[in-house]
Design a protein around this nucleic acid. Structure first.
Lengths: 218, 218, 218, 218
DNA sequence: TATGAATGAGTCTTCATTCAT
DNA sequence: AATGAATGAAGACTCATTCAT
C-alpha cells in the first residue's frame, strides 16, 4: 500500500511569502486528525471536529485531501517517515558500544513515553488494523520492522564483540521492546498508575533484569 | 463501571428443549459482535452484520440488549470474567515452585496466542479506550491488574524462596508479560510473520534471556 | 365510515361460566387503549403498553382486534353509543320544562366534567381528526350532532312555550355548550386551575349570564 | 418552559442578497411543520415530509433545529408570541367603550376563524398536551391566560362603567370565548357544516344572546 | 483559497404485526 | 385462548462529501 495517495498534494513550488501560512495547513490538519482519531477512533471522528481543531472549515479539508481515508493515510505516512530514519541512525551510531547504545535507546524511549502523544499512532494503527490491513502492513514494514532490524543489528554486534551472550537475536529484541511497549499501554491506554514518574528508574529496573536475568546463580 | 446492563436476559428456569434456543441467543450475539467489532471496529460494525452473523434479524438483538453500547459492555464483561479467576488459581497453584509455574504460564500463554481470537478483546479494548475510558478502566481493573498481581505473587514467592534475584517485582512482571504481548501484536495485529510456528520455541528463547540475562559474565 | 370493522368480534354466544373473564377482554383492552391513546396520542401509544395495562400479552390483542386502527375504531364506537342515546332521552324528558331541563343538563355536565376521563374521547377525536377524518365525521354524526339536536329541541320547546326569547336556536346551543367545553379544555387539557372546585357554582354563574345576558338594562 | 431551544439560528447580520434565502429557512420549516403536525399529528408527521414541504432535504432541517421536538417547540413559540401582544393591545384600546370593544373583538375572531389555519396551533396543542404537558402549560401561560386577562379587564371595565351587569367576570369570559371556540371546532375539526358563511351573522346572533340573555322577561 | 449551505446514503432504534408452540 | 420470540418496514438523526459563491 502507499498511504497518502491523495492526488491533490498542492505544492506548485514558488509561493509568495504571504501565503506561507496556507502551506502549513496540511500539517495542521494532520495533527488535528491524529488527535481526533486517537481520541474517538477513525470512524467516530468527525471531519467537522478535525476542521475545528485545525482552525478551518470542514470543506477546506477537502482542498488538501480528497477524503477522510486519505487524511488517515497521509497521517500515517507523515508520522512514520521520521521514525524509520532515526532507528537506522541510532543503530549505526551505536555499533561501537552496543550495550551502551541499547541503554541510551531505552532511556530515550522511556523519556518519550512520558508523552501520551507518542503512543497515538501505534494505538491508531492497532485500532484500525482490522479494517485497513494495508495500513497495518505499511506500519509494520516502515516502522516496526526497521526498528527491530536496528535493534537486531545492535544485538548482533554485541554478540560479535562478546559482550552479549549467544542468545536468539529475535528473542532478545522482543525482550528489549516488550516491557516498554507493555508499560506504555498500561499507562496511556489502560490509564493505570505508573509506579514511576521517573523514566530513568524504569530503564534501570528493566535493564537490571534484561542484562542479568532473573535467576539467582551461585 | 458495570458493563453489560442488558436488562432483558430472560431465564425463568425450566424451558422445553425446543425453546432452549433463545437462551443461547445472547451468547451467540456476543460472539458475532466480538467478531464484527474486532474486524471493523465498534463504530463501523453494523448491527445488521452482527445480527446476520448470529443468524437472527437486526431487531432481535434488541430483545436481548438495549443498545449497541450495551452489547459492547456485555461482551467485555463476558469475556473478562473467566480470565480473572484463572489468573488467581494459577498463581496459587504455583507457589511451591514459582519458576516452574512461570514457565508453565508462559507456555500456556504462547500456545493460546496461536489463536488470533485470544487477542480480540485486548485489541478491542485498545481501539475503544479513547472513546470509552470506563471500559479501559474496567478491563485494567478486572483483568490486567489481576494478572499482574498473580505474576507478582509468583515472583515474590520466588524471591522469598531464594530462586529469584532481588529484582524489582513490577519490572520483572513487565519483563515477563511484555515480550509475549509484543509478539502477539506483531503477529496478529501487524500481520508480521512469526519466526516460530512452534510456541514452545518462543517460550524457551524468551526464558533463556529472562532467567539468564543478556550480559556475558565471566 | 363504520368504525369497528374488526372482523373477529368473538361472541359465539353460550360460553361456560369460567370463561366469562375472557369475554370481558375486549372491553378491558378498549379501556386500556383509551387511556394510552389519550395520554400519548394514537401514534405514540404502543400496543405493548395497552396490552400491559389490560393485563395480557401484546399478541393477545390481536385475538380480538385485527389492528391498532381497529382498536381505535372500536373504541370510539363503544364510547359513543351510550352518549347518543342519553341525549335523546334527556331531551324527551325535558320537554315539559325546558329551562329546568337545560339547567339539569348543565349541572350533570358540570359534575361529569370533574372527571378528566370524560374529556378523553373528545380529546382523542380532536387529536386524530386530521389523520382520520372519517372518525371525526363519525363522532360528529353520532355524538355532537345528536347532542345539538337534543339541545335544539329543548330550546325550540322553550321558545314555543314562551319561556325563551326568540333567539337563533343554533346560536343558543353554542352559547349553552361553548362555555362548558371551554372550561373543560382549560382545566383538563391546558391544566389551568379551576376557580371552582364546586361544579354547581360554575353552572349558576354560567346560567346567570345565559339567562339574563350581560347588558345592564334600565 | 422555553420551547424553541434550536441553537443554530445563524444571524451574523449583513449577508448578500443571494444568501438571504437561508435566513428565511427556519420560518419556512416552521410553516411546513405546522401543516404536517396538524394534518397527521406530531408523531405521524415525518421529517422527510416537512422537509419536502419546505423545499429542502431532510438533513437540512437539522441545520436549523436539533430535533423534531425542537421544531415543535420553536413552532409553538413562534406562533404564540404575536398573539399575547395583540390581546393586550386590544384590551387597552377598548377601555373607553368595553361593549363595543368586545363586539369588535368577536367580529375579528369570527372572521379569522374562517381560516382553518387559525385553529392549527390550538388543535396541535390539544393533541400533544397529554404527551408534552409543558407545552400545554406554555400555551396556557402565554396565550390563553393573557387572552382571558384581556377579556376580563374589558369586562371589569364594563362593570365599572355600569354598562355590564354585576356578573362573575370569569364566567362572562367563558361565555364570550366558549361559543366561538366551540363553533371553530365544529367547523374545522369535526368538519361540520357551518350554518353561516357569514361570520358577521355568527357574531350578531351570539351577541344577541350574550347581551340580552335567553330568558324572556316581562 | 475558503466557507456556509445543502444533501444522499447510511445506521441505530422502534414497533405493529406474525409465528411457533 | 395465549404468549414469547422474531421480524420487516419505517423513521429520526448523522456525516462525509459537494456546491455555489
Amino acid at each position: 500500500m502507499s498511504p497518502a495517495s491523495h492526488s491533490k498534494k498542492p505544492k506548485p513550488a514558488p509561493l509568495p511569502r504571504w501565503r506561507r501560512r496556507s502551506e502549513a495547513r496540511p500539517e495542521e490538519i494532520l495533527d488535528a486528525a491524529l488527535a481526533s482519531f486517537t481520541e474517538r477512533g477513525f470512524e467516530a471522528a468527525r471531519m467537522e471536529d478535525i476542521a475545528k481543531a485545525a482552525g478551518i472549515s470542514k470543506a477546506a479539508i477537502y482542498l488538501y485531501f480528497p477524503s477522510k481515508m486519505a487524511v488517515l493515510e497521509a497521517l500515517i505516512e507523515a508520522k512514520v517517515a521520521p521514525l524509520a530514519m532515526r532507528a537506522q541512525e541510532l543503530a549505526a551510531a551505536g555499533m561501537a558500544d552496543p550495550l551502551m547504545a541499547l541503554r541510551m535507546l531505552a532511556t530515550a524511549a522511556a523519556h518519550r513515553m512520558a508523552d501520551p502523544k507518542v503512543l497515538a499512532v501505534p494505538r491508531l494503527v492497532i485500532s484500525i488494523s482490522g479494517r485497513f490491513p494495508e495500513i497495518a502492513d505499511y506500519y509494520r514494514t516502515h516502522v516496526v520492522t526497521k526498528a527491530r532490524a536496528a535493534l537486531e543489528s545492535l544485538i548482533d554486534a554485541g554478540k560479535a564483540k562478546g559482550v552479549i551472550r549467544d542468545v536468539d537475536t529475535k528473542a532478545a529484541t522482543r525482550a528489549f521492546i516488550g516491557p516498554f511497549f507493555f508499560e506504555a499501554m498500561w499507562t496511556h491506554v489502560l490509564r493505570g498508575e505508573t509506579a514511576l514518574g521517573d523514566p530513568q528508574k524504569l530503564v534501570e529496573q528493566q535493564f537490571d533484569i534484561l542484562l542479568n536475568g532473573l535467576e539467582r546463580r551461585a
